[in-house]
Structure formats: structure tokens, C-alpha cells
Design a protein around this nucleic acid. Sequence first.
DNA 1: GTCAACTCGGACAGGACGGGTCCGTGGCAC
DNA 2: GTGCCACGGACCCGTCCTGTCCGAGTTGAC
Lengths: 155, 155
Amino acid sequence: MSGGVEWGLHCCVVLSGSGEPVPAAKLAEFHDVSPSYLAKQLQLLSRAGLVRSTQGQSGGYGLTRPPAEITVLDVVEAIDGSRPAFRCTEVRRRGPLAAPPEKCLTPCSIARVMDAADRAWRESLRAVTIADLAGEVGRTSGPETLARARAWLQT
Amino acid sequence: MSGGVEWGLHCCVVLSGSGEPVPAAKLAEFHDVSPSYLAKQLQLLSRAGLVRSTQGQSGGYGLTRPPAEITVLDVVEAIDGSRPAFRCTEVRRRGPLAAPPEKCLTPCSIARVMDAADRAWRESLRAVTIADLAGEVGRTSGPETLARARAWLQT
DNA sequence: GTCAACTCGGACAGGACGGGTCCGTGGCAC
DNA sequence: GTGCCACGGACCCGTCCTGTCCGAGTTGAC
Ligand code: FES
Ligand code: FES
């Protein structure tokens, strides 16, 4: 999985509840990561419709929806792609004892198991929203942490 | 995820209940895949202790345990590795407002969510065994399918 | 209205990792 | 002894991730 997922998720958390747009350079300095590369991740988020960018002076990025309506799965799929990790290549149809096409109407049982596991993974990620993450941060690191971060971003 | 997982899983299914060892070349011909690459996957399975190889003439591979005691997760981890997909790089400790070390005793909430999803995925894979897969194949493709496959491998 | 500065957006290289292949070595049965 | 087979490592190649760059467009100020 792409390492940029962590950056995108952290960006979404600090962006939650920030009314003013935040430039990508500020976000990069805040997290101490490469500005150019983080810009690419933000582009992916923008293309997926999770964040909206306003150009010009005093422009930047902001969430398009309330944080409670953005799930972790949305961010992960936007950055890392939405294709499943396991890809069935229909091995059963090859070889000397290949299964005839009339027996391949249903997916292979192995593919079904893999697909079920993938669905469980996605369901677990869909159950958590950005708002949940922000609340958790306030609970573990103190409520003032997020406020100070947003204030620093506005400067 | 590595595409060889599909091959290894199919190999384990056809190997289940086969008393005689099966050479790697036969398995490759049966699935119509590259013999060299499948050999590498079988080596990984052997290193993980799932299959045992007998050398010399009329040698080959065979399962070490009953099929009901080998889970799909065992095969996936043997071939694809057991490290989680998401790797936390502790972004919160960097930047101008870095979290102090005394607040980083517990993992980041984002990392916790990712870890929970990964655990759900693994749990879903651990619930299915090779014997279950073999039974499913017999139910959908007819009970004689596996028997014919094993007979072909013995030739 | 004009200018300038600041922003995003996509196009462009470098490098690391995994897929895929090959051959030499050692061990077992015949 | 001889032939067959698994094992381990070294090797090349394609692909994806990482990282960077500069141009188009927009905004705010003067
Ligand atoms: S044919 Fe693809 S998983 Fe069985
Ligand atoms: S610091 Fe790694 S996920 Fe938050």
C-alpha cells in the first residue's frame, strides 16, 4: 500500500473544521514532508471529490463534505485505488483438465473467499469517519491539540 | 498482492488428499503456468512448513498437515509475507507542532483503525481451511472433478 | 483596469521492489 | 553408479511508487 495514505489521512483530520482554505505548502511544512509529493496526494483527493481547491491568493484546500460524512475508506480508495488486492486470473480454465465454461458460471471458491475478506476489510474502514478520528485525537492528546494545529495553519 | 497466491492456493487444494508426492513440474503443467516461478512459490510454502518435499526419484511435494488444519491465511502469509499492508511512519512526531514523546505512548488513532481492518481481513481468511475449499469445489463442479485431477497428477 | 503574486494542475525523471527466469548443487531411489 | 528431482542462490526485466519540475489559471491589491 502506498505510504502517502498516512499523509492524506492526517491532512483530512487537520482540515476537518477548518473554514479557511489551507495551502498545500502549509500542510507539507506542518507534517514535515515533501511539498511536491504531498501536492500529488491532494490532487488525488481532489479528483475523488473529497476536497475542493480554491486558487489564487489566499487559496488552498478544504473539505467538501462534513467530516462525519467522509469515511476512512473514501480516503484510502482515493489515494491507493479501489481495485481489490487479489485478482483472480481464472487458472481453473487452463491446463489439460481445464474446467469447461459451462461450469465457470459462478466465481471460483478461492476467489469468493478472497473477495469476502476484502469486503470485510473495506467494511471495517467504512465504519470510521474523519470526525471519529478527530474526536479520538482530542480524547487521547487533549482537546487543545487540534485547535492549536488549526491556529498554526491559519498563520 | 502477489499473483502467485492464486497458484499456491490451487496447488494446495489439488494436493489435499493426495498420498503420493507430486513433482513441481506436474503441478505447473496441470495449471499451465511457468514451472520456474511456481517452484519458487512451492519453496516459500516449504519454508513455512505447510508442504514437505521428498527428494530423489519419484519425489515431489505433499501437505504436512491434514487439509482441515491448514487455513487460507497460512498460505497467503507464506507466499505474500505476514507484514501488514499499512505501515505507520509516525508523522505526528514531525513538524513544528510535533507531538511530544510522552503523548505517543499509545499508537496513533489512524494506525489503530488500519490495524483493526487488517486484523478483520486476516480473521476472515483464517476462518476457511483447505478442506473447506476442496469440499466447495466438489459441491459446485461435481465430486468427480477433484478425483480426476488427482488421478491425472499420478500419471 | 492592470499588475503581480500566489495557487493548483498535470507532465516529467529516478529508483526501489517484486515478478519471472536460469543454472549449479545436493540428495534419494533404482 | 546413474538418472531424476528438489533446493538455493544469482540474475535480468518490467512496473509501480517516490519525488520533482514548470506552466495555466485565479485572486487580491493598487
Ligand atoms: S481460478 Fe482464480 S481463484 Fe480459482
Ligand atoms: S502517525 Fe502514523 S498513522 Fe498517525
